[in-house]
Design a protein around this nucleic acid. Structure first.
Lengths: 305, 305
DNA sequence: TCCCCACATGAATCATATTCATTGAATTAT
DNA sequence: ATAATTCAATGAATATGATTCATGTGGGGA
């Protein structure tokens, strides 16, 4: 009845990675013959070829492509399950895999994780930043257990909790004309170089909440990967950036940078912690959320003017 | 290296379903002994017990619960993969599993599926309505391939296409005082019995787009499962309901019911077809969307007043 | 054209999953 | 209480089938 076994998925995956059956066999600690037999049997049982044998090269057939996608989806979940079981055996509770969809939150996260690791010595923490299908997909796909995001999604199956509020501000260098103004208006950025993380404009609050509503675009838009380089560029007058106020104030010692309010009322932001509803009762996950929530105060909340 | 096999997951799942090892073994066409050996070996390899043996009854341990959740998640995907492979073998293309998050859309869907089945004889269609983690979760979890919903979600990994627009109207019986008014105002429903599908109020447009903004609640709220009974109740003066105008007009021959516009401008609605981005290129899926989109016209679009 | 490399194949072997037979323990009936 | 019954565990025997070894075939590069 059941014909598709783990080994088949592993073979299909490894063949794709190695490009040949022989190489895949070696990688899986099998002989070439064993692998060949296994695949032959599988192909005869399902009644379809998995690869098109074009001379010596192997191209996956439609069924092969399909199996490959299954393998890539299910095998990681199986190996992760085994890891967790091994952790259970050693008295550990598990690994909390945290996904980040908010670049500057990394600093904040570190401040939560540090005490958490002490409070929960039996729980490991892992932080990931890249997801093939976005943070939500990673949650649903069991790639991560928790998601740090400015962008909650109130849907069945998921649960989001706000964990901290902050003000998004413009960051300018020491010689910048806007350095000492009370607040900046959108049109004042029309001739600026705007430095942002390399994500689409509709995921950047400076656009969605400030520039776009006013119909303004900056003169130039410069994507930068890391926060430090971004701040360095700003400090040296190469442009302006939009970042959390607390980050700017913390970095003010290292870089010569200055925060400026965006608009008269400022841009208020909230960061959420998302998780699968099924996990909501797990003690070490609840504890993390609680810890993250009670840490609201360390950072300056946007005061209402 | 790899210890967790499909058989183990199947056993864990079946033991939960049957309540005893012996019964589970019978179900899986194994002897009790074989199953016992398999589990003993697995437990020794992972180093944790899977059940707490309290006398003769079995309670899953923490690890057991964990494995059970893995089994419930992964086994259906494996069996579905095998089904698809079998379909490949028979020259079929696959099964399009459509999820519905929109009760009255069922009628509309039938009108799309009927010609689709003729156009794509090698593709089967399956329609599902219950999802443990909501429609989005079902898409991400590969329980369905397409989602019919009024509630799109523009996130990486998913793709939503609007497929038809319609007007949501109030349905009243033949003797109802509101039967012949031009349109109804929220406060006019304050003394009514409102019949809806059994879903939370925040998922019902009559609340979110009409009653709640005006701060009105109906006198009574009556949940009903099926559209036919709902219409029957309305026709016999037991209450009013909110449904698509096209549905009301189609059913007007069978039931003595009448549509009334909700508010001066009416309540406009859109239905979306959602799918995984990874599937967006599959020909028979594209074809379905195209077919669904070109069918926009059959139903009366909400005219702007 | 020759050689090498990659895959396929059949028979032999080996591993291990499954069964059979039996025991002990827990539950139910008498 | 005690017997009968049900269920799970265990060890040895067996059978299944996965893996290896030895060998063959064919394509592509020198």
């Amino acid at each position: 009845m059941a014909i598709l076994e783990r080994i088949h998925l592993a073979i299909i995956r490894e063949v794709e990675a190695q490009g040949s059956l022989t190489a895949a066999a070696k990688q899986l600690n099998l002989t070439q013959s064993a692998l060949s037999h296994a695949i032959t049997k599988l192909e005869s049982q399902i009644g379809v070829d998995i690869w098109r044998r074009e001379g010596r090269s192997l191209k996956p057939t439609q069924a092969g492509e399909f199996l490959l996608s299954i393998a890539n989806r299910l095998l990681p979940q199986l190996t992760h399950a085994e890891e967790r079981l091994r952790q259970f055996a050693q008295g550990e509770r598990g690994t909390l895999r945290i996904g980040m969809e908010c670049h500057p939150c990394y600093q904040w996260l570190l401040k939560i994780v540090a005490p958490y690791l002490d409070l929960w010595p039996k729980v490991d923490v892992d932080v990931r930043q890249k997801f093939q299908f976005g943070g939500i997909g990673a949650l649903f796909g069991y790639e991560i257990d928790m998601l740090v995001t400015p962008d909650p999604l109130f849907k069945p199956g998921l649960h989001f909790t706000p964990v901290f509020d902050y003000e998004q501000v413009l960051v300018v260098g020491p010689d910048h004309p806007l350095r000492d103004v009370q607040f900046v208006a959108p049109h004042q950025l029309a001739e600026e170089t705007l430095i942002t993380y390399p994500v689409p404009a509709d995921r950047l609050d400076i656009y969605t909440q400030f520039l776009t509503p006013a119909g303004i675009s900056p003169r130039r838009h410069q994507p930068i990967e890391t926060t430090d380089i971004m701040l360095l560029m700003v400090a040296h007058g190469r442009g302006v950036a939009a970042l959390p106020r607390w980050l700017v104030e913390e970095s003010a010692g290292t870089f010569n940078i200055h925060p400026v309010r965006l608009g008269q009322d400022g841009v208020a932001k909230q960061i959420f912690l998302g998780l699968r509803e099924a996990d909501a009762e797990i003690d070490y996950i609840r504890a993390f959320i609680k810890l993250a929530s009670t840490s609201k105060d360390p950072y300056r909340i946007l005061e209402k003017i």
